[in-house]
């Protein structure tokens, strides 16, 4: 499981960074989204990967912390998802505004001159 998890994070972060460095605004926003998925998975992984363990204490199972998953990274990931979602939506609006004002989807708001 760890290998698959690590590969997933690596592939997503790699593709995200590649797209982030591309000249079109749509590629940039896709790159940012992929990168934020990778980061969210990473935060989740920092609580150690476990199967079949709930993060909330259950009266029937007892209070031994070893029986439960770490709840803090899961709470952090929720916060990060919400914030990332909101800011990505905001960025989309800015992209559309830039496209409308400049007539191009290049990140510098003008097309590079062709040789």
């Amino acid at each position: 499981m760890e290998v698959v998890f690590a590969l997933a994070i690596g592939v997503m972060a790699g593709s995200g960074i590649y797209l982030l460095l591309r000249p079109r605004t749509f590629q940039v926003i896709m790159g940012l989204s992929l990168l934020s998925y990778a980061v969210n998975l990473f935060i989740f992984g920092m609580g150690r990967l476990r199967t079949g363990a709930a993060p909330v204490i259950d009266a029937a199972r007892g209070t031994d912390p070893a029986l439960y998953a770490d709840p803090v990274p899961q709470a952090l990931v929720l916060t990060a998802i919400v914030i990332g979602f909101a800011v990505t939506a905001l960025l989309l609006v800015v992209l559309l505004a830039a496209r409308g004002l400049s007539g191009t989807d290049h990140v510098d708001s003008r097309e590079p001159e062709r040789e």
């Binding site: 982030l20 605004t25 940039v28 940012l32 990168l35 934020s36 980061v39 914030i83 990332g84 800011v87 905001l90 960025l91 800015v94 992209l95 505004a97 830039a98 004002l101 400049s102 990140v107 510098d108 708001s109």
Partner: peptide, 17 residues
């Protein structure tokens, strides 16, 4: 403003990640 703001937002988003 939109052009400078776009760069500002993207750089700070990456920094946040």
């Amino acid at each position: 403003r939109v052009k400078a703001g776009l760069h500002y937002i993207v750089v700070n988003l990456v920094a946040s990640l």
